[in-house]
């Protein structure tokens, strides 16, 4: 059997800042090394996301337990771990009086690239993130969006196995945000990099991540495989029809589905695996019903997040599942 190395592996990890314990014994395994997947780290302010990232980078030492990145202990083999990581911090981090190309080249050389290769990669990566034309400008003259891109460039210039992005879309306008998310998706899909994204923006995480971890009060309260959620949620359908829908319940088993009427023509239907939504269209057409609304009802990450935070008793998807089971 192949030895699977998780991207992040935490074993009863406890971290203290001063005398206050911030992370309370977290244990989890996230992602698989070399698969080019993105992991989202979510949580409200003070949940411990940044502390976890700083611990993974070796900036903070665990008071107990272990943290490993790509199989390397973050506290005892800091150099090894860091040589395989690219980090994009949340706040402004750069050297103002350097041009973007000099800055990125210096960072590449610090990561171990020979001088010539570092220069070449600096040019390449700056074009890649859309700063090609501005690469000879000093960083202090950059706009906020350009600085974010420059930070991303320095994080990936050396081709790390894991890129840690702390609030990558912070302060970006919609177009720049879209571009940033596109770059993240490219990083994992085309370059095969693993990405750890820490963000408050659930939609960003939902859009680019394959896994999500929700933290609260220094602990992990939910860990979900977003890809699996996406797949499973496809089986829940919300339907709204006009016309006599009394025979619909009896007709649903024809396509292997089950459903419950909520009155006024509203239905919640659970489709069996392998049956897609077109089957509903056909069935409803045969019943001579007029469809007013037909949507896949999937749990959004927001709903999963709200449930994890204790603000929702159950997600709509779970409610749908109960319908299916009844």
């Amino acid at each position: 059997m192949m030895n699977v190395i998780p991207v992040v592996e935490l074993e009863d990890l406890k971290v203290k800042l001063g005398r206050r314990e911030i992370l309370h014994g977290i244990t989890c395994r996230l992602g698989v090394s070399g698969t080019g997947k993105a992991i989202g780290l979510l949580g409200p302010n003070g949940a411990g996301k940044s502390t976890l990232i700083l611990t993974l980078l070796g900036f903070l030492r665990p008071s107990a337990g272990r943290a490993r990145i790509l199989g390397v202990d973050c506290a005892h083999s800091v150099g090894d771990a860091r040589s395989r990581i690219g980090y994009m911090p949340e706040n402004d981090s750069f050297i103002g009086d350097m041009t973007a190309v000099a800055f990125v080249r210096q960072m590449a050389e610090l990561s171990g690239l020979p001088s010539e290769a570092a220069l070449e990669k600096a040019h390449q990566v700056l074009f890649h993130v859309g700063l090609g034309e501005a690469r000879y400008r000093e960083l202090r003259t950059y706009s906020l969006g350009m600085k974010q891109m420059a930070k991303l460039a320095q994080a990936i210039v050396h081709g790390p196995e894991l890129v840690v992005l702390d609030e990558p879309t912070n302060g970006l306008d919609p177009a720049a945000r879209r571009r940033m998310l596109k770059l993240i998706v490219e990083m994992k899909n085309e370059q095969g990099m693993n990405v750890l994204v820490c963000s408050h923006l659930l939609r960003d995480i939902e859009q680019v991540c394959d896994e999500a971890v929700i933290m609260k009060d220094g602990a992990i309260v939910h860990h979900c495989d977003l890809e699996q959620e996406r797949r499973s949620n496809r089986s829940f359908v919300e339907l709204e029809v006009t016309g006599d829908d009394r025979r619909l319940r009896a007709a649903l088993p024809e396509i292997g589905a089950e459903g419950v009427s909520e009155g006024f023509g509203r239905w919640r239907i659970v489709l069996p695996p392998g049956v897609d939504v077109n089957a509903i269209w056909t069935l409803v057409g045969r019943q001579q019903l007029l469809v007013r609304k037909l949507t896949h009802r999937r749990d959004t990450l927001e709903e999963i997040f709200l449930k994890a935070m204790g603000h929702l008793a159950q997600t709509p998807g779970e409610a749908g599942l109960e319908v299916g089971q009844s």
Partner: peptide, 18 residues
């Protein structure tokens, strides 16, 4: 001073540099 003013230390220390 410029490294501190521009918060560049996390960038240096996230690399194999103690």
């Amino acid at each position: 001073a410029p490294d501190l003013a521009n918060n560049a230390l996390p960038l240096y220390f996230s690399r194999p540099l103690t």
